Amino acid sequence: MNTTAGQATESVRSGAQSLHENHVFRMFARVGYAVNGVIHILIGGIALSVAFGDGGDADQGGALAQVAEAPLGFALLWFLAGGLFALGLFQVLETVLVRGTDKDDWADRAKEGGKAIAYLAVGGSAATYALGGSPDSGDQAQSLSAQLLTSPGGVVLLVVLGLGVAAVGAYFVTKGIRQKFLDDLALTNGSRKKTATVLGVLGYVSKGVAIAIVGVLFVVAAVTSDTSEATGLDGALKTLAELPFGNVLLVVVAFGLAAYGVYCFIRARYPRS
């Protein structure tokens, strides 16, 4: 029975490897990186308008809403969704292809799996907009918080969720400061690498700060039992604007998110794998 299970595992891994190495599929996955870049540039622009007193949802939903309002927005949304789904599937394959059972291997699986979930979720949002819906990340976060708070041990679960999200934010900040994102690029020393380094540091740190704030707001919601405190990226950025010198900080983060978007284009053009 173990032999049969092992053969099935190797068969799945072999199929995943074949698709992972397919040139056309990898091209679509690279389009997904570029699509992710477009979304972050739009989010950065919305965040900048929020800093100067204008409205708008500074998150994926707000960015997708802008795309929907553009000429041929319906077709563009399906293009965005397709690219993100391809990238999400690519990350699923990366998860499947991780070998080994030690701590680092499981950490790699968790990292690649988390990326897959994130890309597939945003792709799903793009498809929802293309079908005429309008998902709200803030409402979804509050709904999830309310469900957790009313369940046994819900406060603890919500705190754990918040700490987990904050840890993801810390990961982005650390990756930016240590310039580990350069490991994802096939760039040698030169002007392109210097440009990618500047964009990557600013982008990863800014995105990490925004994600960490989302995690903190989940913890606050758990401690205060106020689900209105739990919100998505839009709420996190608007919370940042309410701090002393918050508008200045928000402008910096807005440019950082846009910088991350441009970095994603470089990631699409010069992938290491």
Rank of each mutant, 00 (worst) to 15 (best):
E10L: 15
S11R: 15
A16G: 05
E21K: 05
R26K: 06
A29G: 02
R30Y: 03
R30V: 01
V38L: 15
I39Y: 02
I39W: 01
I41K: 11
G45T: 11
I46V: 05
A47Y: 05
L48C: 15
V50Y: 04
G55I: 14
G62C: 10
A68F: 01
A68Y: 01
E69W: 00
L72W: 00
G73E: 02
F74I: 13
A75P: 02
L77R: 04
L80P: 09
A81N: 06
F85C: 10
G88F: 14
G88L: 06
F90V: 07
T95A: 11
V96I: 12
V96S: 01
T101L: 14
T101Y: 07
K103D: 12
D108F: 12
A110H: 00
K111C: 11
K111I: 04
G113E: 06
A130C: 03
S134F: 15
P135A: 10
P135E: 07
S137A: 13
S137N: 10
D139S: 11
D139N: 13
Q140T: 08
A146M: 03
A146I: 13
L149W: 12
L149M: 11
L149Y: 14
S151M: 10
P152I: 07
G154C: 07
L157P: 01
L163G: 14
G164F: 11
V165S: 01
Y171A: 11
F172A: 04
V173T: 15
R178P: 00
K180M: 15
F181G: 09
L185I: 07
L185T: 06
G190W: 05
S191N: 12
T195V: 15
G200W: 05
G200H: 02
V205Y: 13
S206E: 04
K207T: 14
I211G: 02
V219N: 08
V223P: 05
S225N: 07
G235R: 03
K238V: 01
T239R: 09
A241K: 13
V248F: 09
V252F: 13
F255W: 09
L257R: 13
A259R: 10
C264I: 12
Y270T: 09
Y270A: 03
Y270C: 14
Y270E: 10
P271N: 03
S273L: 11
